[in-house]
């Protein structure tokens, strides 16, 4: 039986999408590098346009590429084995994302358990505190940096808590949507998926609200407010970007479902989007614990 599956492994013909994607990535990287450099030197350059052009090209590429894949899949060229490749590919991609976040969580844990206490004179760094930073006392959240920048901490109650509830709920609704798809209940599928998307968007809305609160005069919690502000905004910011991406994926799925795509046993793309959504959710839970509560 396995032999049979194997024989129909689909090897696509030449495709021009990857090279389009390569050019797009080049535009993004080169544009962003120029943009960032000009931003620091406070001059205006073409970098931003190149960056936007690159992003547009990537979107164009993704549309073209995915519609190829969708057509191939809809016309039954894919075997069960092909589906497996996609699934495994997606799961390893998510694993790589986990490791990306791990770098930032690692940084957070490192500063909390080492560098901030050391600056205050802990461990083998007694002299660091005594000679270099005599006025500094270590604490977390770090509200006054050794250099003297002051800020306030973002509590976990209120918006963050609401967001936690929203995102956790959305994970559940995403799961229900998946179940509905597997049982071929299309109306329920649409409803659950729609709800998931709304919850996701609500999360993003509150996140923006929270940021504007942070940047207000009363909180003065900026990206530049020392390591507390750094880790806070970088972690929640990258998470927010992933939620945005996840939302886009889910919205695309929604439209594909409206068009009648997916069957109860062939719905890799939907599965991938929902995995991604669960991943984003798990990251938030960890983030909520380590960034907000503890």
């Amino acid at each position: 039986m396995t032999t049979k599956e194997y024989e129909s492994y689909y090897v696509p013909a030449q495709s021009h999408w990857p090279i389009v994607g390569a050019v797009a990535l080049f535009m993004i990287a080169f544009g962003a590098a120029n943009y960032v450099t000009d931003f620091k030197n406070e001059v205006n350059g073409y970098g931003g346009y190149l960056l936007l052009g690159g992003i547009a090209l990537v979107i164009y590429m993704l549309f073209g590429w995915f519609s190829n894949v969708i057509n191939e899949s809809m016309s039954g060229k894919y075997s069960h084995q092909m589906d497996n490749s996609f699934r495994q590919g997606m799961s390893w991609f998510i694993f790589s994302e986990v490791m990306f976040f791990a770098a930032f969580f690692g940084a957070l844990l490192y500063v909390r358990s080492f560098s901030v206490p050391w600056l205050g004179g802990a461990g083998n760094n007694f002299e660091t505190g005594a000679v270099l930073w005599p006025d500094f006392t270590a604490s977390w959240p770090l509200l006054k940096t050794p250099g003297g920048t002051e800020t306030t901490a973002m509590g976990w109650f209120g918006l963050p808590l609401i967001n936690t509830v929203l995102l956790l709920t959305s994970s559940i609704t995403a799961h229900f949507a998946h179940v509905a798809l597997e049982q071929n209940k299309r109306p329920q599928l649409k409803a659950w998926l729609g709800l998931t998307i709304i919850l996701g968007l609500a999360f993003l809305f509150f996140q923006v609200l929270e940021y504007s609160h942070g940047y207000s005069d009363e909180m003065q919690l900026y990206l530049t407010s020392g390591i507390y502000g750094n880790t806070f905004y970088m972690l929640t910011g990258f998470h927010g970007m992933h939620v945005t991406l996840g939302c886009i994926m889910l919205i695309v799925m929604f439209f594909r479902i409206l068009k009648g795509h997916f069957t109860s046993d062939n719905h890799f793309a939907f599965q991938a989007a929902s995995w991604y959504w669960h991943f984003v959710d798990v990251v938030w839970v960890i983030l909520f614990v380590f960034v907000y509560i503890l």
Binding site: V36, T37, A107, S115, T145, P146, L223, T224, Y228, M234
Partner: peptide
């Protein structure tokens, strides 16, 4: 990728992951 990103923000956007004055190392 994570560490070059921190490098980027430290250099261009005023974070202090690697700067003791901001609590980094």
């Amino acid at each position: 990728a994570g560490v070059v990103t921190m490098l980027l923000t430290d250099t261009y956007f005023g974070t202090s992951f690697f700067d003791a004055a901001g609590g980094g190392d």
